[in-house]
Design a binder for these strands. Structure first.
Length: 327
DNA sequence: AACGTAGCCAACCGCCTACAC
DNA sequence: CGTGTAGGCGGTTGGCTACGT
């Protein structure tokens, strides 16, 4: 690898084992009180900043090497949802991991994983339905066009479309209640609709990771009786029965508490699922990518998407709640 | 075998903040 | 209070490697 040298004569680029040894020796002898003075003390032709970075990100004895565990992954996702790109703060919750390492892990893997799961990595909220549906549109089209649709099939597709519209609307209502903005992706797996849509090999997941779902529900339940935007009675009353069970059974983070991270089990109370397969018919076990999760994982513990499914699948209940919502 | 591409990660860059003077 | 400097932080780059064509 080519060695680069700055105009001031200081070396840049990758560190050699010899340089590493000199730096470690020096810090063990003298500590690193002044990073500016350290290179001279160590006999290194590097700037203090470079030495500090090398030490903190690579040579420090308490650095934890190796792949991130699932637990660490969950912590990072949840902390990022709370803190954003505060890598140094996030690193403080993960002993032995550096901010740089976490940042790289986030940018190269977690971000993509969340995107695949339909979650916007910046907001930790579901991506827009267009973002989500467009990638699978060709599959949906090719699947349906590959069949000779009978009238029954056509009607079925219409039903699918109606169900999809309902899901989108529920998602938008939820987001409106929570953030005052709309545009949200369909929060349930495609197989919810019908086999005609469910056969598409699409990366589905619950609408939000469990943690965020907890926040959503918490906010949801703490909404004032009247909607702040419309000064009308909130939709929550109409929807509350649907979520009651979920709210009672799920552990949710107390967003009013500043004790984030103090609970020893707060990261084990829920799972951040990966992806679920769109259709057991379509995907055999050995075909499933490792980032897919089973439907069983998806449905336990109960989530809002289950509640949504209840709305959608139970026609009587559906009619009742939708009547309430639309009134 | 050669080439192209994507993923990964160490290291650098530039900006911000705290602090000393 | 203004200025200079060191340290810290997040964003970005560039090289290495693995994999696909």
């Amino acid at each position: 690898m080519e060695m680069t040298t700055e105009e001031n004569g200081l070396k840049k680029g990758p560190w050699t084992p010899e340089e590493d040894r000199m730096l470690v020796d020096c810090i063990q002898k003298h500590g690193h009180g002044s990073w500016k003075e350290l290179p001279k003390l160590a006999g290194l032709n590097r700037c203090g900043k470079s030495c500090r970075l090398r030490w903190t990100n690579y040579l420090r004895p308490d650095i934890k090497r190796g792949a991130f565990t699932d637990e660490e992954e969950r912590v990072i996702i949840d902390l990022h949802a709370e803190l954003g790109n505060k890598w140094s703060v996030i690193a403080s919750y993960l002993p032995g991991r550096t901010d740089n390492e976490i940042k790289n892990f986030w940018n190269t893997r977690l971000k993509k994983k969340l995107l695949r799961n339909g979650i916007d990595p910046d907001t930790h909220m579901p991506r827009t339905h267009l973002d989500t549906l467009l990638p699978v549109l060709p599959q949906l089209l090719s699947y349906n066009s590959s069949r000779n649709l009978t009238w029954e099939g056509i009607v079925r597709s219409q039903e699918d479309a109606a169900r999809l519209a309902k899901v989108l609307l529920v998602g938008n209502i939820l987001q409106l209640l929570n953030t005052g903005t709309t545009s949200v992706l369909p929060p349930v797996a495609m197989e919810t609709f019908s086999p005609s849509l469910g056969s598409a090999q699409v990366t589905n997941r619950p609408p939000w990771d469990s943690h965020m779902m907890g926040l959503q529900l918490e906010r949801f339940t703490q909404k004032p009786e009247f909607d702040a935007l419309t000064c009308q009675p909130s939709f929550k009353d109409a929807l509350r029965p649907v979520f009651q069970n979920t709210m009672e059974t799920n552990n949710v983070m107390d967003i009013n508490s500043n004790k984030f991270g103090e609970s020893s089990n707060m990261y084990t109370d829920y799972e951040v699922p990966d992806l679920i397969s769109a259709s057991p018919v379509c995907l055999s076990t050995d075909q499933e990518p490792d980032n897919f999760i089973s439907l069983a994982e998806f449905s336990n513990p109960p989530t809002t998407s289950e509640a949504l499914e209840d709305i959608l699948m139970d026609d009587e209940a559906s009619n009742y709640y939708w009547k309430r919502v639309l009134e």
